[in-house]
Amino acid sequence: MEETTVTDQPEASVRKTSARKDEEVKNSTTGSEDGCKLPAVEDVVLTQPGLGVTTTTITTITQTGGQWSTGLFNVCGDKTTCLLGALVPCCLDISLAHQYGECLCLPLLPGSTFAIRVGIRERYKIQGSVCEDWTAVYCCYPLAVCQMIREMRQRMKTQTYHVSTALECS
């Protein structure tokens, strides 16, 4: 008679007994209610006791609603952005894609600035329409990019992060 026992641990142990070791198996068996003999199983510790479970909660508060924080023609509010928008708006568009959380190659695709503007308006619940977004981007591209950069910076400043950590002992 041959018996194989495999335990469910990372280091699986296999025990084989032959006919001459039947006596050892008989000595290590226990009875059950129906009279059957079962091999005795030792309790195995699968996890070690630790310090406990750490729970971390992060709360983000984002300002939403209302109008754009700055107007389309409010170029004097941020002189650096205004200068970059006038000289190299494509570089400013790449910076906008990065701040928005998109790939830096996104501004190379046609219509991407328009899509980001609609996304900013939807994300922050800014009042307006797709028609207004299209007009701003395609008629006043550098001004629209500058406005979106200013909006992203303004909205990112108003986010509040609250981090709390709790340790539950086991």
Rank of each mutant, 00 (worst) to 15 (best):
C36G: 15
T64F: 13
C91G: 12
R153F: 01
A86F: 13
E11I: 05
V75N: 05
C169K: 07
I94S: 00
F73W: 01
C105H: 15
S129F: 15
V88P: 08
E2R: 06
E151M: 13
T17H: 10
D93Q: 11
L84S: 00
L84T: 02
R117E: 01
V45C: 11
C82W: 10
C90M: 05
M1I: 06
V45M: 07
S129D: 03
V53N: 07
A97V: 06
Q99H: 05
R20I: 14
A19L: 14
G31W: 12
R15P: 03
R117I: 02
I126T: 06
K37G: 01
D93T: 01
I94R: 08
E168V: 00
A136S: 00
V137H: 00
R117S: 15
S69P: 04
D22H: 11
S28D: 14
G85H: 13
H98S: 10
V41L: 07
T56I: 03
T113G: 11
E33T: 12
Q159Y: 06
V88M: 03
T47A: 08
M156F: 00
G52E: 14
E151W: 03
G31P: 12
E11Y: 14
G85Y: 00
T30C: 06
T4V: 05
I58R: 10
S112D: 02
M1N: 10
S32F: 04
Q154A: 09
T7K: 11
T7R: 01
A40F: 11
R155N: 04
V137S: 05
G128M: 07
V88K: 12
G50S: 13
T47F: 09
G52N: 13
S13H: 05
L38K: 13
K157A: 00
R15V: 11
L109P: 01
V53D: 06
P110V: 13
M148S: 09
V45N: 10
T60Y: 11
F114W: 13
T7E: 13
C131H: 07
T160C: 05
Q48K: 12
C140P: 02
I116R: 06
D43C: 10
Q67R: 07
T29H: 13
T54I: 10
